[in-house]
Amino acid sequence: MKQTRLLMGMPISIEIIDKSVDEKIFDVVYDYFKYIDNKFSVYKNDSEISQINQNKILEKDYSKDMKQVLKFCEQTRKQTNGFFNIQKDIGIDPSGLVKGWAIFNGAKLLKKNGFENFYIEAGGDIQVSGKNLDKENWRIGIRNPFKEFKENEIVKVISVFNKGVATSGTYLRGAHIYNPKDRNKKVDEIVSLTVIGSNIYEADRFATAAFAMGQKAILFVEGLNGFEGYQIDKNGIATFTSGFNKFILENEKN
């Protein structure tokens, strides 16, 4: 059973293979994403994050989830030498970490309810669990960053088991991720960075941070134990980490 709903400013898809699935579990997980959106969306005036940016809440009164997220953001900032930075012009915006963290929590909710074979995909970031309908590892295609979205052309196919896969990138209409070390400089050396990690929380925060490093992003991923990456530069040349091979599915080319 599969559903797609628009939340957190993007389409979120959940597919559950287990035979015991029914409609109710989808509501449970989507309600959680709604809760996340209401707390962390900088586009909602009433969200906790907007209240914080308007100085309307004291730090001691931040919610438990907010404190947890901010702690993770600070940890990630240190681990990436400042390339991950939630300080933006409008205040703080932790969405680069919240997305992966929320998807991962959604997956944990599914597991807690006894589901083993599923995926959650939100805006191109994916947490997989178990096997697909063919009882094989989930097959994920990396989108060609140079093509329009409706074409959905795939340039690499990977097969993963119990992993998180996050892709940071730009798209045809221009670069929307900036280098936190130099706010005036758009990051356009690379256009796509896919990170495979033990879960989507880890993959997403490092994909977000690394993307801001330009061409050296893939070297950062190479240096991370337990992570693999596939980077596409503005000339259409892909570079991959030394352990990425094991995930590649050889395909017939179009």
Binding site: E121, I142, I154, Y171, N251, N254
Partner: peptide, 13 residues
């Protein structure tokens, strides 16, 4: 370009 026989697509949105 690769065959599009995949379950899920990952890409910047």
């Amino acid at each position: 370009a690769q065959s599009a026989n995949v379950d899920i697509i990952s890409g910047a949105t």
